[in-house]
Design a protein around this nucleic acid. Structure first.
Length: 201
DNA sequence: CCGGGGATTATCT
DNA sequence: GATAATCCCCGGC
């Protein structure tokens, strides 16, 4: 299986890329512990024009600095003081587009994921929702800035095509304070997959 | 299955 | 000092 190439991330249309990330496989390899899962839910955050984006209106701080990195960088931040959220940075350097990985379907290293999350069983909550994805894959804020073509966090493409009729589209979750931008249809998910968060599947 | 509310702290004002 | 791109548990049905 091949890594998702840099050219995939370098394109300009972050919403299109968010949709195309469905079906790709996220792998983490930290200290010899390999865990992976198939992406089943994503959300696009469209840089400086998107009121729901951390980089809206060009806001740039220590937290969101990696949104401005070149395509194929991981942007990880802490939400609600405890959840580690994994994003994929797209578009040119200095253009802060990113895609939040909201849910994956576990593939490899399920025992490790159970240890990390403290769960007794591998049920649908193991990797459902962005906070759980970060926890199961062992992702922390200090991993922000890693390059997705290196060996610690990367994406694989198994060449299976995700048919359009299997893809659901909706507004994003938890961004009510973004005004009218909260209505944008920037969330994509695999219809019927039990790991998709929310009730919308 | 569904809704309400508490947890918990980095980050920004 | 307020907010946050969330999660879990609990009670009710």
């Amino acid at each position: 299986m091949k890594k998702v190439p840099l050219s995939f991330y370098q394109r300009k249309d972050v919403v299109k890329i968010a949709k195309e990330l469905l079906g790709k496989i996220v792998v983490t390899n930290f200290e010899g512990k390999v865990t992976s899962g198939r992406i089943v839910e994503t959300e696009a955050y469209a840089g400086i024009t998107d009121r729901a984006s951390h980089s809206f209106a060009g806001r740039r701080t220590a937290r969101n600095e990696h949104m401005y990195s070149s395509a194929g960088t991981a942007y990880i931040y802490i939400c609600y003081g405890m959840h580690q959220m994994l994003n994929v940075v797209t578009n040119d350097k200095e253009i802060p587009d990113a895609i939040l990985i909201r849910a994956v379907e576990p593939i490899e290293g399920i025992e490790i994921m159970l240890q990390r999350t403290g769960k007794a069983r591998a049920d649908k909550t193991l990797t459902r929702g962005p906070g759980n994805v970060g926890k199961a894959l062992g992702i922390f804020k200090h991993h922000s800035g890693l390059y997705l073509l290196d060996e610690e966090i990367f994406l694989l493409d198994d060449s299976k095509k995700m048919p359009d009729e299997n893809i659901g589209i909706s507004k994003r979750i938890g961004v009510e304070s973004a005004g009218e931008d909260a209505l944008l249809l920037y969330r994509f998910y695999v219809k019927g997959n039990k790991y998709v968060s929310g009730k919308n599947y």
